[in-house]
């Protein structure tokens, strides 16, 4: 019985958002037709579908290119943020050095930085990854650092009473405790990675969905630009959900530590 109601709830969880989106698109289509809005202003979903479909092959390649940039930027954020957060929380002196630098990286407008990065790093994938990283990593560092210092003092005391070394305290107590914080940071980072990748593609790219939006609007292929936009939001949703699923599968205890047992 529990299984059935859970399945029902699950179906509702999936069905309700899908139905909402379907209604939204239907209303959009109807509005475009009813008010006869020209396609170069706001194209109807059907026009987007048809025009983007005609370019299915190139659009697919652009999508792959953007996905690669997003994932590499996201990976860089993860790999750099974790040790950075550990450094920030282990020593007040190091924190004093790093924090202003972090804030500095965030106060620089990334769109303005991107062309300069191209000059420095060359017109290749690297400046795009760096821009994506710069957009995405900051909330991740902050939330991992918050998790590392949120460990209850009793657990730290337990570690001390067991003669845990500083390294073991971080590895066995602080980091596991911070897992829910890490994941909330990762969820922010994956979404921002998509933003960062598109920003980078606006400035410097010969492929990618950001590049497609720039070129298709330049040639008045507005429905294709809208198609790229929709693919980007789908990409954001899918990547976000992958992070959610990874947390659910590998760190089930991090979701609700006070939930009564399943048994």
């Amino acid at each position: 019985m529990r299984g059935k109601s859970a399945a029902l709830r699950h179906a509702r969880e999936v069905f309700v958002p899908l139905a909402t989106i379907a209604v939204l698109f239907a209303a959009w289509e109807a509005a475009c037709r009813f008010f006869a809005i020209p396609a170069y202003l706001v194209p109807a979903p059907s026009a987007i579908w048809v025009d983007t479909g005609k370019l299915a092959g190139p659009v697919f390649h652009h999508t792959v290119a953007t996905t690669v940039t997003v994932l590499l930027g996201f990976l860089a954020s993860f790999v750099i943020s974790l040790p950075l957060a550990i450094l920030l929380t282990t020593s007040p002196t190091i924190a004093g050095v790093i924090y202003p630098l972090l804030v500095l990286t965030q106060s620089i407008p990334k769109v303005a930085l991107a062309p300069i990065l191209v000059v420095i790093l060359g017109a290749n994938e690297l400046p795009r990854i760096v821009v994506t990283f710069l957009v995405a990593f900051f909330p991740l560092v902050l939330s991992v650092a918050a998790g590392l210092v949120a460990v209850p003092p009793e657990l730290i005391e337990l570690g001390r009473s067991c003669r845990a070394s500083r390294w073991k305290e971080i590895w066995r107590i602080r980091l596991p405790y911070a897992v829910p914080f890490v994941f909330s940071g990762l969820k922010a980072a994956i979404t921002l990675s998509v933003v960062g990748a598109v920003v980078a593609e606006f400035v410097n790219a010969d492929r990618g969905l950001g590049y497609l939006i720039v070129t298709s609007t330049a040639f008045f292929q507005v429905p294709v630009a809208w198609g790229a936009l929709i693919i980007l939001s789908l990409m954001g949703i899918v990547l976000f959900q992958i992070v959610v699923i990874v947390e659910r599968v590998f760190f089930p205890w991090s979701l609700s530590s006070d939930r009564p047992g399943a048994s």
């Binding site: 209850p152 009793e154 657990l155 005391e157 337990l158 570690g159 009473s161 067991c162 003669r163 845990a164 070394s165 073991k168 066995r172 107590i173 596991p176 405790y177 897992v179 760190f251 205890w253 991090s254 530590s257």
Partner: peptide, 29 residues
């Protein structure tokens, strides 16, 4: 290392199994 602590709250690590929790001092040392 020859002193064992029991705290007011059980202070078990929520991510570790009961066995791993019991083994925690040995692992730390």
């Amino acid at each position: 290392s020859d002193t064992g602590f029991v705290f007011q709250a059980a202070t078990l690590l929520p991510w570790a199994t009961i066995l791993d929790n019991v083994l925690f001092p040995a692992r730390m040392m």
